[in-house]
């Protein structure tokens, strides 16, 4: 926001006001800030940063995870194993990538479309907005159960529609049992879950569109599409960056939906990195492998997040 007008080093400015401010600043400093920071920093270090570093360390060891069991240093062996001997790792990696890419297209486009549609005065607009947003507040594990029931091959939506319209092929689809289809069936539930959130974000962004600019463009004879492309869309650019980053993060984190709908099956074809890491550590007692996968996930996340953080920091400095 950079609304704070106080320069970072008040002493460099001159005048009595700056001196006054410098006197106050000397009351602060890191020691004065510490009591406010300490609880947060302690919790963050012990339960977030510490475990992350520990997970990198364990990735170089072979360990069953049982307390008292020996930890044997094996160097890069766990990485060699996941890259060369673990076919599920590659399935999980490619599924994670597919998930991220699809998420950047379908729910984002849907959210934007809904936001643009619901930004104009319409009868029942708030009810529409609420209904589209509701899935976003439900527990993903509850969503997984609802959708699992809808995909039930005998009594679910597909089966019911097949009977109604006499379409036997529709009734035969194994939504969650087909190895090629299952991932996309789960993804549909994900779209249902997050499109409303994207809509709300885009609606927030649309409030920064200046109505006068649209009026002006209309008077110049611009078509609806031209207005969207040249007026609305540029104003939405900052929010789009946020939606894209959030989408990537949420896609990498996907876990509950998959556990609840397939558990990674059939034949591990719906595994993703987050779940496979968890399964290796807790299910197979391969802590070394599990944490090596977690470390790969961490590196992928940092590759995406760090440039974004640097970029926003620079934006802030410039403004």
């Amino acid at each position: 926001m950079s609304t704070s007008t106080a320069p970072p080093r008040p002493r460099s400015t001159s005048g009595s006001r700056a001196q006054r401010r410098a006197a106050k600043v000397s009351k602060t400093g890191f020691i004065a800030a510490l009591p406010f920071l300490a609880p947060a920093l302690a919790a963050y270090l012990v339960f977030v940063v510490g475990p992350m570093i520990e997970s990198v360390r364990i990735s170089f060891f072979e360990w069953s995870g049982f307390q008292g069991a020996p930890q044997e240093f094996v160097g890069f062996k766990n990485y060699v194993r996941i890259f060369t001997q673990d076919p599920v790792f590659w399935t999980a990696l490619s599924n994670t990538i597919i998930w991220v890419l699809l998420s950047l297209v379908i729910p984002v486009a849907l959210g934007l479309t809904l936001a643009v549609a619901l930004n104009r005065p319409l009868f029942g607009r708030n009810a529409f907005r609420s209904l589209f947003y509701i899935p976003g507040v439900l527990a993903p594990i509850a969503i997984a159960n609802m959708w699992r029931w809808m995909y039930n091959p005998n009594f679910g939506v597909g089966a019911t529609l097949a009977e109604l319209f006499n379409l036997p092929w529709l009734g035969e689809i194994q939504w969650l049992g087909d190895q090629r289809l299952a991932l996309y069936s789960i993804f549909a539930a994900f779209v249902w879950q997050i499109a409303g959130t994207n809509m709300v974000l885009f609606l927030a962004g649309l409030q920064s569109v200046v109505p006068e600019h649209i009026e002006a463009a209309k008077l110049d004879g611009a078509s609806g599409w031209q207005i969207f492309r040249n007026v609305t869309f540029p104003a939405l650019r900052p929010i789009t960056v946020i939606v894209v980053v959030l989408t990537i993060i949420n896609s990498i984190k996907v876990f509950d939906l998959i556990v609840g709908m397939t558990g990674g099956g059939p034949a591990q074809k719906t595994q993703v990195l987050a779940l496979w890491s968890f399964t290796q550590s807790f299910g197979n007692n391969e802590y070394g492998m599990g944490n090596a996968i977690a470390t790969v996930l961490l590196i992928i996340t940092l590759i995406i997040v760090v440039p974004y953080m640097v970029w926003t920091a620079r934006q802030e400095k410039n403004s």
């Binding site: 992350m52 997970s55 364990i58 984190k253 550590s281 997040v305």
Partner: peptide, 11 residues
Amino acid sequence: MVPIQVAIAPL
């Protein structure tokens, strides 16, 4: 921004 699962086993 980092997925929870990255730290869950050591946690």
